[in-house]
């Protein structure tokens, strides 16, 4: 899974250089790949695509960050990115996994949050600047909009979600928990 790691310092230094037109195009392409487990959001919206570099002709280097260290979706993400870039005519694609800085649910874009809610998954609440999210802050039911919801389990169908139930419409739903 971990095809390579890179120090955050290296990433920061490279990020100073303006992306070329080709890099921007390839980034848009890689970023448009849907998440394998939550296909309503793209990798760009999920905030896991860190960088796309073109170090030489016919070569692309993509930096991905996992949502959770054990997230099995990252292998599929890498394969999907390789596929779309190969289809675009880039023969040499390498996808490396970067850990720093650690991914946070704050990295999910506003559009990503909207799509999650539309899909029936309550989006994560933003972290306050001082300390963790208070667990008591209400989470809205993605089906009926009620804030009267209860936690069934902190862990759900995937590592990134918690299972809740709406006390108004009685429907269970997933909540993308804050990380």
């Amino acid at each position: 899974m971990v095809t390579g790691t890179r120090s955050s310092a290296g990433t920061a230094a490279e990020a100073v250089a303006e992306p070329t037109a080709l890099e921007s195009e390839l980034r848009a392409l890689a970023g448009s790949v849907p998440d394998p487990e939550l296909p309503v959001v793209t990798l760009e919206e999920l905030g896991v695509l860190r960088a796309v570099h073109v170090p030489g002709p016919g070569r692309v280097e993509v930096e991905l960050t996992p949502t959770y260290t054990g997230c099995p979706a990252i292998e599929t993400m890498s394969a999907d990115i390789e596929r779309v870039l190969h289809e675009r005519g880039i023969p040499d694609v390498s996808v490396v996994t970067v850990l720093s800085p650690a991914w946070s649910t704050d990295d999910i874009s506003a559009e990503g949050r909207r799509k999650l809610a539309e899909f029936g998954i309550a989006p994560p609440r933003p972290h306050s600047t001082d300390g963790p999210v208070p667990l008591s802050l209400s989470i809205r039911c993605p089906h009926c909009g009620s804030t009267d919801t209860e936690l069934l389990s902190r862990f759900s169908s995937t590592a990134c979600k918690a299972l809740r139930r709406c006390s108004s419409c009685r429907e269970p739903f997933d909540h993308f928990k804050e990380l």
Binding site: M1, V2, P66, Y68, T69, G70, C71, P72, F155, S156, T158, A159
Partner: peptide, 11 residues
Amino acid sequence: NIALDLLGQAR
């Protein structure tokens, strides 16, 4: 899920 997190850390 907890086991999976730990497995990811181990890897």
